[in-house]
Design a protein around this nucleic acid. Structure first.
Lengths: 424, 424
DNA sequence: ATGTGGGCCCTTAGCCGACAA
DNA sequence: TTGTCGGCTAAGGGCCCACAT
């Protein structure tokens, strides 16, 4: 009997028993073993590892939270190669945004490439319930967003791999502080102190490394076992590994791949999710008042199509006139993050026929740094942070803007889209 | 931009242009290249290769055929680990068998493991249309089943890999007749005649091999390039490779993996196909009179849940009393096939609550050879061939039968399930 | 503090014919 | 006819330090 490692990791349950072979292909001289059934570790460490792999910016709705679900975003994620659905596909009479209650959230990891993703169970709410919600406490509305991310583990590090790290020629050069923080101390009186490290990945697979302190000047290195890890995980320079030490000293390690075109949500989710299927599933759930499942990859692209209720409301309540300057975050390494800024150049519905009045990526923006051309030029109001008090740029000063047609005159505001008509 | 190789191969269209990297990981010294965009070959050779990989027993319905679709079988295939759906899932008021017209059939290959599968577009038919069908010509009813399988290519061979074939120690030992049949002739006057072979797989990826005739006694071998192919395709001893020579001499090669627990339909299809999703998609298609898609892996398990109309009718029209002896086919190697036989020991619906009166695997059987315990003990009427005129075994003679409870008294017959009530 | 490269050893991939089944 | 083995050679994995940034 086989157990799908895609479903071993779960923040809700303690069922970490599943073994399988976890992609460990080495047979005899194994520096990795899949002996995860003997793992006595609590699942909390996996939860922390999951969030570490997902990056510092990831925050997920908790069970019971109220969120806004955007079918458009869901469709985009599932078929990134064809931005627009075929003409004959209608919106199944679905609203562009659907208020839902989070009935469950699973933290998962792609068996093939270790990318983290989540599976949310969403229960559509009716308009009546929306009104009732207004009197509820804030927690259910997803206001405690910051609290969802677990406290950052003190003993963890994340390093972007260099060419030397991934080459077959040598091992892995461990940053000094990282080794001192996360690894058991070595006996520095010895000539070349070394020890064996054992770390588990998100699937519970054990990886063994020889940790040695040597060289002139002295440094921490991972030698034996490292190259196997690199090849098994298909790591290349630019990807990042992260180590994490739990309370009782046990090690976890995860990977955070560099942004590549294809490293988003795994095939296992994308395939067989065509437009019609997704829409019929959601439409069915709405009409039968039953929950449906949504898979979401936090590291794939900034496509938040499941947004905390309060965050959404806040983002559309404040006016965002054209020319508004804003900032937003992109994480780069360890726990640092790069801030990008830009200016709103237009407001229009992406697909006015199928999804009229949809807020999904309704803002046309221009980024300040041209190097970041990989960012979308269409973003959603809740993705940006317009609270920056910079002087709004004159639109005429930008040559690129002259190509744009006159944006329609519908600035976003809460009054234009009262709750009573927004949802369902 | 990336192209999903899962969808490159298609029997219907000529759109074989898609390149991608086809899982070819070797970088510089590549014995495989993904230069499939330059392929001038017609897609018919791919069709033949697909059928060769699928095995001699595979026959698929053609576009326009009328078939019977069984949701139960579809659900089984998608979640082979949990044989029964959770209690709260109903059948969505779907009938256990749904008459459909085949609107399209794509021949596909799993990008990860090269397993062949098909994607069928099925359009549910109404009862009225069923009645009208009775006067139609036989072709549309799927009677030309045998004709669907293309004429067997004369120049092809299939060899099950030995331990030596898959070892890193050596190359691939080519059966003599195979080499003479499929490969260009060598100059046997030379001491060690050799040549370079180039073959394309289902994804259009080129593989190059050094073909040499040497040794004492002389034999045909594939040396350089072979081990890369083995490792890239993850072949192990027991798997089979097959070579195929087209009319103009170009080579194709495919693989047929040994039956393993997990080699069925790829993850890309299985995942995210839970019971509720499938049923809501099908129910939606039935109610909106639109088509839906079904993925089916012919080599995974003998779970024919899309059955030609006539085949189904024939199978349930004839009485199958308990004790009936039957034969059935299982393919083993090349184009040979092993025949298995057994006896029908009971007839009952698998899931009487959700799918009453369903014919899906309603026969309990006992196989004659005990070694074949991997076969299902529950088969569908159309999977067996009861035309064998062996004396029916006395039920009491079997010790294993004593454990069975008395089977319900509902022998299968066409009159018990008239067409008018069977479908929708 | 740590990325890269040269030196060097030794494992392993991989081609060959000798055998044997 | 063809599966497996021992022999042999060459390629590269992988540990070490020097050096540079």
């Amino acid at each position: 009997m086989e157990i799908d490692l895609n479903h071993v990791v779960s923040s809700e349950l303690e069922k970490n028993g599943g073994g399988g072979n976890g992609g460990c292909l080495s047979s005899s001289n194994s520096s990795c073993s899949s002996n995860s059934s003997t793992s006595p570790a609590s699942s909390s460490i996996y939860k922390e590892l999951w969030y570490a792999c997902a990056g510092p910016l990831t925050s997920l709705p908790k069970k019971g939270n109220v969120v806004v679900y955007f079918p458009q975003g869901h469709l985009e994620q599932s078929a990134s190669h064809s931005p627009f659905p075929p003409m004959e596909v209608t919106s199944f009479d679905l609203h562009p945004q659907i208020l839902c209650k989070v009935m469950g959230a699973q933290l998962l990891a792609n068996k093939d490439n270790d990318e983290v993703y989540t599976k949310l169970a969403l229960l559509p709410l009716l308009e009546l319930e929306v009104i009732n919600l207004k009197g509820k406490e804030h927690e259910e509305l997803g206001l405690d967003e910051g609290g969802v991310t677990p406290n950052k583990t003190p003993h963890m590090f994340c390093k972007t791999l260099t060419a030397s790290d991934t080459s077959t020629h040598g091992g892995f050069s461990v940053p000094r502080r990282a080794a001192e923080d996360c690894f058991p101390p070595l006996d520095y009186k010895q000539q070349r102190p070394s020890q064996e490290l054992v770390a588990r990945d998100l699937h519970g697979v054990e990886w063994k490394f020889r940790h040695i302190y040597r060289g002139q000047p002295r440094r921490h290195l991972l030698t034996t076992g490292w190259s196997i890890f690199v090849s098994q995980k298909n790591l290349v320079s630019g990807d990042a590994v992260l180590f994490l030490r739990g309370e009782s000293g046990e090690l976890r390690l995860g990977i955070r791949r560099a942004v590549r075109p294809r490293n988003g949500l795994p095939d296992s989710i994308l395939a067989n999710q065509n437009y019609r299927n997704i829409l019929s599933i959601v439409a069915n759930a709405v009409s039968t008042k039953s929950s449906f499942h949504v898979s979401y990859s936090p590291r794939a692209s900034h496509a938040d199509f499941v947004v905390p209720y309060q965050k959404y409301i806040t983002s559309i309540t404040n006016q965002i006139p054209i020319g508004t300057r804003f900032k937003t975050k992109f994480d780069v390494d360890d726990s640092s993050e790069r801030r990008c800024s830009g200016v709103v150049t237009g407001i229009r519905a992406l697909d006015p026929y199928r999804w009229p009045n949809s807020k999904w990526r309704c803002l046309t923006v221009r980024w300040d740094e041209d190097g970041s051309s990989d960012h979308h030029e269409q973003v959603s109001p809740w993705e940006i942070d317009p609270s920056v008090s910079l002087p709004p740029l004159s639109i005429q000063s930008s040559p690129r803007l002259k190509k744009l047609r006159t944006p329609p005159n519908n600035p976003i505001s809460g009054t234009n889209f009262p709750l009573n008509s927004c949802f369902l």
